[in-house]
C-alpha cells in the first residue's frame, strides 16, 4: 500500500515540478536573479495552500497530526542552507528538480546528479567531524514548530496555538504570492524557455 502511494504521489510531484517550470534552470535562474518571480509566486502559493489544508484538516480531525515530521534546528542547518543555495544557483537544480530534469533528458542534470552523489558521499565520510564540532547540536529546542500544535509530538517554540498560527502563516504565504510582482527591475524576460 505504501509503495503504491509512493508511486502515485511521487509521480504527481514529478509531473507538477515539470509543469510549473521548476525542473528548468532558466526559470530557477530568473527567480533567483530576481528578473522573473513567476516560480516564486507558484512556490509561495503551494506552501500556503499546503499549510492551510494541513492545519485546517488537523483542527477538523481529518488529518492525522502524527504524520507531521519536523526536522531539528541546529547551526548546521543555516550553513548547509547557504551551501545548498550557492549550488542551487550555480547548477539551477536542487535535489528533487535535478532528478526530474535528468529524467526529462537534460544533459547538465546528469552532471548535477553525479556531483550530487559525490557530494552526499563526501558528507557521509566527513559526518563525524561535523558531529564532533557541535554544529549539529540542537538550538532553540531542536525539532520545534513556531506555535504549539495540539496532539503533536513536537514542542512549540511559543505557546501560541500551532494550528491557528499555521493557518495564519499559510494565508500570509498566499497573500505574498498574490502581491509579489512577477517581474522586477527593468522587465526581465517572459519568453517561453522551450
Amino acid at each position: 500500500m505504501n509503495i503504491l502511494l509512493a508511486i502515485v504521489i511521487g509521480a504527481a510531484f514529478g509531473a507538477v515540478l515539470d509543469r510549473i517550470g521548476a525542473t528548468n534552470p532558466t526559470w530557477i535562474g530568473r527567480m533567483l536573479a530576481l528578473t522573473n518571480l513567476h516560480l516564486m509566486k507558484t512556490i509561495l502559493l503551494a506552501i500556503g495552500v499546503g499549510s492551510v489544508l494541513m492545519f485546517g484538516g488537523q483542527m477538523l480531525g481529518l488529518v492525522d497530526v502524527g504524520h507531521m515530521s519536523v526536522k531539528a534546528a541546529y547551526l548546521g542547518v543555516f550553513i548547509g542552507g547557504l551551501m545548498l543555495g550557492a549550488g542551487w544557483a550555480l547548477a539551477g537544480y536542487c535535489p528533487g528538480t535535478g532528478v526530474c530534469a535528468a529524467a526529462s533528458g537534460r544533459k547538465d542534470a546528469l552532471f548535477f546528479l553525479a556531483g550530487g552523489l559525490l557530494g552526499a558521499a563526501a558528507y557521509m565520510v566527513t559526518y563525524p567531524a561535523w558531529k564532533a564540532s557541535g554544529l549539529l547540536d540542537s538550538v532553540a529546542g531542536g525539532k520545534v514548530t513556531l506555535g504549539t500544535v495540539p496532539g503533536s509530538k513536537f514542542d512549540g517554540l511559543t505557546a501560541m496555538s500551532g494550528d491557528v498560527l499555521g493557518i495564519v502563516l499559510g494565508a500570509a504565504f498566499i497573500v505574498v504570492a498574490l502581491v509579489l510582482p512577477e517581474r522586477i527591475g527593468g522587465g526581465g524576460v517572459a519568453v517561453p524557455a522551450e
Binding site: 545548498l84 547548477a91 537544480y93 553525479a114 556531483g115 559525490l118 557530494g119 559526518y127
Partner: peptide, 10 residues
C-alpha cells in the same frame, strides 16, 4: 553545483 547542493543538504 550538485556536489555543493548535496553536501549542504545533508
Amino acid at each position: 553545483g550538485g556536489f555543493v547542493v548535496l553536501y549542504g543538504a545533508r
